[in-house]
Design a protein around this nucleic acid. Sequence first.
DNA 1: CGGAGGGCG
Length: 701
Amino acid sequence: MATLPILQHEEKIIQTVNQNPVVVIIGETGSGKSTQLSQILHRHGYSNSGKIAVTQPRRVAAVSVARRVSQELGVHLGEEVGYAIRFEDRTSHNTRIKYLTDGVLLRESLADPELNDYSVVILDEAHERSLNTDILMGLMKRLVKVRSSDFKVLITSATLDGNKVSKFFTDCPVLTIPGKLYPVEILYNKERPSSYLESSLKTALDIHARQPEGDILIFMTGQDDIEKLVSKLEDKVRALEEGSCMDAIILPLHGSLPPELQVRVFSPPPPNCRRIIVATNIAETSLTVDGVVYVIDSGYVKQRQYNPSAGMYSLDVVQISKVQANQRAGRAGRTRPGKCYRLYPSRVYDDEFLDATVPEIQRSSLAGCVLYLKSLDLPDIDILKFDFLDPPSSESLQDALKQLYLIDAIDENGAITNTGQKMAELPLEPSLSRTLMEANNYGCISEALTVAAMLSAETALLSAPGRSKIERKRKNPVTNLPDGSGLGDHIQLLQIYECWDQTDYDIGWCKDNGLQVRGMLFVRDVRKQLSQIMQKMAKGPLDIRTNGKGEEFRKGYRNLRKALCTGYANQLAERKMHHNGYRILGFQSQVVQVHPSSVLKADELGKFPDYVVYHELIATPRPYMRNVCSVEMRWVVPIINKLKTLDVYKLSGGVEHVEEETERNLPDFPKKDVDIVASGDDRESRIQAARERFLARKGNK
DNA sequence: CGGAGGGCG
């Protein structure tokens, strides 16, 4: 234990913490910061007046670090040392050191914004800049002022942006704790390769043929590239003359790989055999592979980003940041000196890579975040001027306000409503919380709970190897899986869960139908958690039983779809007259399609419904609505009316300067477009009226 | 008809 570098700095750390409310700790990999900082503070009495909280961006980390620390202190996990993650709280009144995910601490701060349980909060892995950690940093900055002397905040960060964090916390001190990494030699390509797939292949084979033993870790961007590279590597390795060099096994590693295949990277290779692991950035932080001596870094990563003016996400391949490049290189030096082959020139690293990854808060829709901050009701905090380490654009904040207004979470002045306050209690995206609120009024809360839970797990539902097969199955009536009665994907998700429910949560049934067991169990947990929160809010019994093909089924799921329409008022689309493209309402004008994987059915004329709500817009690179639900025009009318009263300036509390009225894209078909649609009649006139009022309002500005 | 990096309540 004495070998951990951080322990040699114990005195300095305590002295600095004594004298400062906030301290930034730059702890390199292997410094022991995650396990030792809490213990050091504990030893020096910081846990006497309250608990020491240590946040982690990931659950597994919170659990495993807590376990380690409890062992080191020789106590039972859950006593002096415990952890809290979603669905699981292993702490007691004895707990002095509590590891928790950043999300859990945020939830706790909803109940007690001053976090009076804690004397110290350590935000670990803050350099990863997770959305929740960024919000927490903003809250901590306020809290150290409010709670003054008895409260300490420690933030761990990376070398490259430690000073930035320090500046944010009014120039607090920065302590650097060296790590225990072995040196890693960095080798650059002279030029950027035309194909980083081919370049990785060549580099890997080169290492395999010429370098001493040690595993190779290759960072690629996604499943597709990984599969291609794995198969090429297998061909080449097989073609090598026997005995000319050692054996090699090739292992893919990415998130949609089933867990039993993921854990293969944790078992050591047979003797005289080299492992070549081809991974996404899952191997950058989430999973640590032992035995890696060589890293091949493509310099790219797949990143999800949100465009607030279009209300759309895209998944793009982008260049990594310097922090990421260093993190990747560090993976080669965990067991002995290693080498990192960067498939790009050093000038690209120097001149083109950003210092740090663009924080998630600048790449996400902020509706949930803004609702959360509003619900805290901090008198001294103005949401639009909330002090973030890296503030999101005002465009993004206004988009969030607009969305929250459309789903009744805030009023026209931007103040949180009673509905909004309740919505914030639910661990869901605002659209889904709003759907639950509404479903409660329509007597379909059970169905809505299921839909919300299913969508919370969505990506974890389909098993990886059969993904494309399942997608085909979704269309193909040969399968036993229900088809959403043609009404869309939300309904299908509900029906799938109800089928599973009827098998008494049979695991075999999941496997037979190509559904991930872990994903479905997660859905059941989420549904239970949501039910409990709803019961508590209702202050009375709520019929949350799953009742299979009951009332809602017979009524064409009308109540549920109506509730979804209200919840997704900010994600509404109207079909173009002459084809099956949709225009989305409330964002800048654009035409989108229903995602090909959708089970939404066209009518006998081949037309989709006039109106749908969608769970997500994704450009890949063509714009699609993913997970759509058919809704009726008369449910849509009040939403269109609300869109007309939208005044972002007022929503912002009249304080923020709004540059220019963004186009609302209210329904306004060109005159020549006289294609007759099912519900044509009074739709046309309403649309015309809406258009005129909108234009009139615009003219007034 | 298209494609899914990672993570959290």
